[in-house]
Design a binder for these strands. Structure first.
Length: 260
DNA sequence: ATGCCGGGCGAAGCCCGA
């Protein structure tokens, strides 16, 4: 099972990039983040005509997440604060139904939280707490569970090309990292680190010269339940889409899990 | 060195991202 995740920074501008990526890689599932489109503006037919089922949680102007899957999707859930109206569209979850089995999957766009010391950073930490609560509930199901997306957290100093520069960034704060670790300690594994205990590659490069200088961040992650982690065999960061014309500032990450 | 990019909104300049 090949599962990809990509913060596209506008689904409308990046539609040709997405189509090209799907043609070249043919993943079973593609998680999308930062659609920057309300539901009625999402190019659903164009995406579905690539051979995928599509579910989405859009928002006007900002945020927005989606899941594309070759297999049927059931039991769709959107958002974490189900009681709040006009909640930011940062979470979508479903059950992927296979012939004799299946797995649960979420596409997440964790709040950036900058600048620190403001209500934006508070919101980030609150969102992470809600997220952690949801993931804890999912673990109780003892299923294959896969959480992918833009986490907006550098788990460690080595997950940034220039950690010194990131000292006052919300992605680097002890509170952000502690919450991330709390999620890991609740029973999830960082798929990249399972296969690469010593090596870091970037998933994001700022617009400008960062990509040509290869100065980036590792902030797009896949978290796996133990059951799913046992079957992980590959993690690739595909930098080709970042080198295209008019790219997203993030590039796709792709995992391969056997016998799901 | 933080918005100098890039996108959305909406029709100029501001908000947002990391």
């Amino acid at each position: 099972m090949k599962i990809a995740s990509w913060n596209v920074n506008s689904v409308r501008v990046r539609l040709p990039h997405i189509q090209e990526f799907l043609k070249l890689n043919s993943p079973d599932v593609l998680l999308l983040q930062e659609l920057k489109a309300q539901n009625s503006d999402i190019p659903a037919e164009e995406l579905e005509s690539c051979g995928y089922n599509l579910i989405f949680n859009g928002q006007k102007g900002y945020n927005g997440v989606a899941i594309m899957s070759k297999h049927p999707m059931e039991d769709v859930k959107k958002n974490l604060y189900l009681e709040v109206e006009n909640e930011q569209a940062r979470y979508i979850e479903c059950w992927i139904s296979l012939k004799k089995s299946g797995y649960r999957l979420s596409s997440i766009y964790l709040p950036n939280g900058n600048p620190i010391g403001t209500e934006k950073f508070d919101y980030k930490i609150q969102w992470m707490q809600k997220f952690k609560d949801r993931l804890k509930t999912l673990l109780e199901y003892e299923e294959n569970t896969i959480i992918g997306g833009d986490f907006n957290v550098c788990p460690e100093d080595r997950d940034a090309a220039d950690p010194e520069k990131m000292k006052n960034d919300a992605l680097f704060q002890p509170e952000s990292r502690t919450k991330y670790r709390e999620i890991l300690y609740s029973g999830y594994l960082d798929a990249w680190r399972i296969l690469n205990p010593d090596k870091t590659e970037w998933t994001y490069w700022d617009y400008g010269r960062a990509f040509e200088q290869n100065k980036g961040l590792r902030i797009d992650h896949f978290l796996l339940s133990p059951r799913a982690a046992d079957k992980l065999v590959d993690f690739k960061i595909d930098i080709k889409p970042r080198a295209m014309n008019k790219p997203s500032d993030h590039t796709p990450i792709i995992i391969e899990i056997l016998d799901l």
